[in-house]
Amino acid sequence: MKEIILNQLNASLPNIQVETSEFKDELTIQVQKKDIVEVCKVLKNDSELKFIHCIDVTAIDWARRKDRFTVVYHLFSLKNKFQLVVKADVDESDCNIDTVSSVWRSANWHEREVYDMYGITFNFHPDLRRMYMPEEFEYHPLRKDFPVLGIPGSLPLPKK
């Protein structure tokens, strides 16, 4: 399956760089930030791959200086019964990535959640609001520099 995916990707998009890795039978491909929409379109629409089920979009905060965040896409192909992980690094100084909600509509809310929790902006997203926290909240809770107990006074309580 790994060869098929790489072949199809190379055939459709000859100019992209793809790195692969495997852990516990899960295939991961790492792509450049700028190519993410193109890669996802091929993965979804190619007749041999058909990754039509976007399970999840999330991000990882590595708490490092370069490429602080990694955006992770979990895809599933019902045709091949195969699960694939796609990754793209995002730097903190340029904290944005193109949206894939035009490819899978289900990515819409996942990206809003990532925006809420990590503060990564998704370009061209149709409705980029906070998912869980109130709109006035200033922080991004899942970043590693945010304490579990929160910042006192950042969320108001009603008067007694």
Partner: peptide, 10 residues
Amino acid sequence: YPVVQGIDQF
């Protein structure tokens, strides 16, 4: 962070 530590606060 999001949970009120006891509703007797309000």
